[in-house]
């Protein structure tokens, strides 16, 4: 009887939007007893991810049997994987496999791309990788796929339209690639959320840095941020000009704390091309909004070299 009652409560949690936050936060607290941040270097994307997720207690910590999972990589550009404008397809593939292994009912993948979405999905290699791994690519090119949500904690971005794949998922995983960015300075986890919203021009028009931080305050936050730094784009980001902009650094960062993930990734990037954390406005603004911490020294960090 007790078990039945609990299941009932759990399913209620899943359907009530406000309470869903509680469900997600409690999940995050449970994980925080272990490592807050896992950093891996030196392996292939799928190998590094397997090691990192094991340190966090396995995918089962985030994905429960029967869950509808959405994975949001960066697929913004009509570029091949070698040019590091989009998330590594091998990493996306491994995450999907782990989700399905953990019992996910379905795994959906999408991005609101900048270039023509069909070309981006195809030429990034992600569509092929997702379908081979058992996931599903969803379109994100039309406004009808987005629903308006309000962001009460936000400063400038009070409402925005977010893709239904995020809103309707039980959990979603944020999988950005580490890049230099002409406008926002860096493109990492928080910046990757610009791909879940419909109207990006509003961001650019109303203090880009503040809007990126504002967008991250949404109720339905990613349960996990996986920063792909296998190849990073050191210059001319976010699209890149030639292969000169790419450095193969073989890194990977996992954290439930989106601010910490971006802080760690920025410090890692700083070794390739100088960037001060203060100039990446949205990271500090995110911390001010209580989205996470930039003080990595206070966190329980696991460093692995493969």
């Amino acid at each position: 009887m007790k078990a039945v009652a609990l299941t009932g409560v759990a399913s209620t949690f899943k359907w009530v939007d406000g309470l869903e936050v509680l469900a997600q936060t409690s999940k995050a607290t449970a994980i925080n007893r272990g490592f807050d941040l896992v950093a891996v270097m030196g392996g292939e994307p799928e190998v590094m991810f397997r090691k990192a997720i094991a340190e966090l207690g396995g995918m089962g910590k985030f994905v429960k049997p029967g869950y509808k999972v959405t994975i949001k990589p960066n697929i913004g550009w009509d570029r091949v994987p070698e040019l590091a404008a989009n998330t590594n397809p091998a990493l996306v593939s491994e995450i999907i496999k782990q989700c399905l292994h953990a019992g996910a009912k379905e795994v959906n993948v999408f991005d609101h791309t900048c270039d023509d979405w069909r070309k981006c999905y195809k030429n990034s290699g992600i569509e092929e990788a997702v379908e081979a791994a058992g996931g599903k690519m969803l379109p994100g090119h039309d406004e009808s796929y987005y629903r308006e949500i309000s962001l009460p904690k936000a400063v400038n971005l009070k409402t925005t339209k977010v893709h239904q794949a995020i809103l309707d998922a039980d959990v979603w995983i944020n999988v950005p690639i580490l890049k230099n960015h002409g406008g926002a300075k860096m493109s990492i986890s928080m910046k990757n959320l610009m791909g879940i919203v419909w109207d990006r021009r509003f961001f650019h028009n109303h203090d880009l840095q503040q809007c990126i931080a504002d967008c991250t305050t949404l109720d339905k936050r990613p349960v996990l941020n996986v920063v792909d730094a296998y190849r990073l784009m050191k210059s001319n980001g976010p699209q890149g000009k030639t292969a000169d902009d790419v450095v193969t650094t073989k890194g990977l960062f996992l954290s439930t704390d989106i601010v910490a993930a971006d802080t760690a990734a920025t410090k890692f990037f700083n070794q390739v091309s100088a960037i001060s954390l203060d100039t990446v406005g949205y990271i500090g603004k995110g911390e001010a909004l209580g989205l996470g911490t930039t003080h990595l020294e206070k966190l329980n960090v696991k460093r692995i070299k493969v």
């Binding site: 406008g183 300075k185 699209q239 000009k241």
Partner: peptide, 13 residues
């Protein structure tokens, strides 16, 4: 404020 949307979309920089 920062923007850079134009540069972002420029394939040749």
């Amino acid at each position: 404020t920062n923007c850079g949307a134009c540069s972002e979309h420029c394939p040749t920089q």
